[in-house]
């Protein structure tokens, strides 16, 4: 159980370990995007963790990184194909950031730091927890950015008559939101 919950709070990949920032900054413009990105990354993370953990005793340590990358890339391409087949609109929204999950350091990081040393069951729990933590953190950033930057939540207008601050939808807004969030968390921990 500890393996599961640690990814959500104590070792949240995005807000505590600062892993996987690139997709987080790029795709957190709206809540639907954040959820889709989070779920896609979680799927890849859980399955790559499982496989890496299952074959951890057969992989010589000198070629472990290429092996992990091949495994991760395989699942990413599978996700991409399935999204293309079942929701082309979503595929257009996420665009290049789906294939870029391959180099999401959160996934390689968990394979290297956790799954290669622990049993499959623990690795699945770790993957689920980390994935969920990643998704929640993404949603938090997207919530702020969509609300301030577009005045909407899930595409529905929340504040009538509000003139949106478009900078929050732009990349600069991502860095601002992310930085303030990280700072706030650090401050809270210090007290």
């Amino acid at each position: 159980m500890k393996e599961f919950t640690k990814g959500i709070f104590k070792e949240n990949p995005l807000l505590r370990l600062a892993l996987g920032l690139c997709p987080a900054l790029a795709i957190s413009t709206s809540l639907p995007n954040a959820i889709a990105m989070g779920l896609a990354a979680t799927f890849v993370l859980v399955f790559s963790n499982t496989i890496v953990s299952l074959i951890r005793n057969f992989i010589p340590s000198r070629i472990r990184i290429p092996c992990y990358i091949v495994i991760i890339a395989t699942f990413v391409v599978m996700v991409e194909r399935f999204i293309k087949a079942f929701s082309p609109a979503l595929e257009k929204q996420l665009g290049i950031y789906i294939p870029l999950i391959v180099v999401n350091c959160m996934i390689l990081g968990r394979a290297e730091a956790f799954a290669s040393k622990n049993s499959p069951v623990h690795s699945i729990l770790d993957g689920l927890g980390m994935g969920l933590g990643f998704t929640l953190a993404l949603c938090l950033i997207a919530f702020i950015r969509e609300l301030v930057g577009a005045g909407t939540l899930w595409g529905i207008n929340i504040i009538p008559g509000y003139d949106p601050a478009a900078i929050f939808i732009l990349p600069a807004g991502a860095l601002l939101t992310m930085g303030l969030l990280l700072g706030a968390l650090k401050l809270k921990k210090k007290r």
């Binding site: 010589p60 000198r62 092996c67 091949v70 495994i71 599978m78 194909r81 399935f82 087949a85 082309p88």
Partner: peptide
Amino acid sequence: LGFVLFLVCLGAALCLSLTYVFTEGRIEAM
């Protein structure tokens, strides 16, 4: 080392070709 890497890649290729066959028709139709 080469053999292990080969096995991993073989597994990956197998998974990918299955996914490709399964989704090809749907993607085209979409």
